[in-house]
Design a protein around this nucleic acid. Sequence first.
DNA 1: GGGTGTTTGTAAACCGGTTTATCTGATGAA
DNA 2: TTCATCAGATAAACCGGTTTACAAACACCC
Lengths: 339, 339
Amino acid sequence: MIKKKGPTIQDVADRAGLSKAAVSRYLNKSIRLPQETGRKIDEAVAALGYRRNSIARRLSKGGSETIGLVVPEISNTFFSEMAEAVEQTASERGYNLILGISRNHPDKELGFLRWIDDSIVDGLLFVTNRPDNRRLQLDIRRYGAVVLLDEDIPGTAQDKVFCHNVAGARDATRYLIRTGHRRIFHVTGPVSLMSVQERLEGFRLAHEEAGLPCPDAHIFHHDYSQRFGREVVGQILSHPVLPDAVFAASDYIAIGMLEELKRNGVRVPEDMSVVGFDDTALACLVTPKLTTIRQDAAELGRIGTERLLDALARPETPRGVTRIAASLIVRDSVRDTRT
Amino acid sequence: MIKKKGPTIQDVADRAGLSKAAVSRYLNKSIRLPQETGRKIDEAVAALGYRRNSIARRLSKGGSETIGLVVPEISNTFFSEMAEAVEQTASERGYNLILGISRNHPDKELGFLRWIDDSIVDGLLFVTNRPDNRRLQLDIRRYGAVVLLDEDIPGTAQDKVFCHNVAGARDATRYLIRTGHRRIFHVTGPVSLMSVQERLEGFRLAHEEAGLPCPDAHIFHHDYSQRFGREVVGQILSHPVLPDAVFAASDYIAIGMLEELKRNGVRVPEDMSVVGFDDTALACLVTPKLTTIRQDAAELGRIGTERLLDALARPETPRGVTRIAASLIVRDSVRDTRT
DNA sequence: GGGTGTTTGTAAACCGGTTTATCTGATGAA
DNA sequence: TTCATCAGATAAACCGGTTTACAAACACCC
């Protein structure tokens, strides 16, 4: 509990009989000193237990060797898997990770952006799944060191990493069609999100290919939540004709639906097939195990971190969009009606 | 992408026709200035868009207004629920949260502890579920501002927040006995962990009360993982006499067991009852829904954060252990054999 | 011996705030 | 008038590093 006042670089310099500058430059390897001198410094550092003060270092160097990850929530396994990968990648490259949880509050999001001005972080990995009212868009454009993950903010020119939403959704829908389903509903998030639009596009594409109709009445928009999954079941069950399959645009929606369908005596997949999206750890925990589109949150995090770190190292290089795979994982929630 | 060089306090002072000192003290409310002077400063701040540099501030004040949370992993929902609560509580009290993921590596843990020396954080919330080889113990004692959550590090005198492990485990076991089970196995983590010992104690206590034997052969130690839950099923099924119930010391273990039991054609709860511990969000996702002991990760995080912030504000006050409730949540994984 | 590098090392400025000790001028009391 | 007091404001030290510009010492070559 004693107020610690660690030794400063001056103490090391004194003990080694050198100047601050020599010690600093030696420690940062920005100078090559003769063996003997280096040894004296090493000895002094060890004897005093010197560790440089990173705040002072940041102040004079202007960097923090820290990046931030901003997510709407962390208890969502999709985001926590992403966070784990980001931490791993960042720490391998000598960076710390600071975590920001925005709860989708615009003010919090803006506050996190300020971390960059504050030298709290050098750059930010940013995930938002809230429709933007342009405030975020205007603000975020000022920052070079922001990488957008998973969801776009229209009108920005940052580095971005998304998955192949269209292809993933198309494959999911094709698979349902191929296994004999003809009346497929789509349950998804708010229209304004890029991922929602793209998955919907994939869903439509697969229908067109197969020459199947795809009426708007079969599409349910709200948000990517378990709760919505539960609520939508009531709406679906009150339809005059029941679907034989549902493509949910997120595992959380799918899981909520699974729960509620079970409560209503609708068997999955016997009475209704369900496909999710994301393949979080939850997907194979539920019964039946969820057939879903795998979007590797860890890879999203890993690639995003690399992009960000590269952008920090070479701010000149142009920004771009990277897409990662979205591939079908077949489990037990779809019935093959051909057999 | 332009190198930002925000206005400094000197710029504000110049514009307001005052000195740095006046501006700094006014902005920190450590002085009361006449209306007119204050207005001039406010005006200058607004006109220049001045925002103070938090790094410079940390260097001279010695504090960071940031706390850290160190967890073994974040994709474990127990820890992510905790993190969410910590972030919430900290941000309500004006603190930032930095997240450290230790992967149970001693070196990483030690590194995070150093964040305190580095002024990266003012204090740390620390969770480790790795048996300590005394290195951590020796190191952690030097820090006043470290609060231990969920799991103890023996030999330390920090503030600590745990749940009532003994009572929780005792209640779980009592419940199994009350519902007619007589041959109960206990699957748990490494013996060296406090939570393991305490839960085991509760397990034994309930047996003694009921006059039931509790042989060591019924207790399986390894770690708190889903994988171990899967693996232990093989060992259990090869026992000459099968248990009628298993008390798993973590939901992850229980969930792993549920999976593997199902694969082996053992029905839960008809053939075997299972009780978990923690009540993470996963518990009601699996089938059957898991009967478990609720240990509120969010409350753990909340209380821990408050303790830490209090300790930072008043380092003099004595440290202590706080216990939170551990209460039985009845769901579907236990069969009432009396009915 | 003198010119030219090359090592080896240093003094001092700087990063952008906070804080302490001090100064100035006005007001009031004696 | 003179001294004490006090509000209002400031200069300068400080936090602990990094970096620039330069000096001293030594080596090498002709």
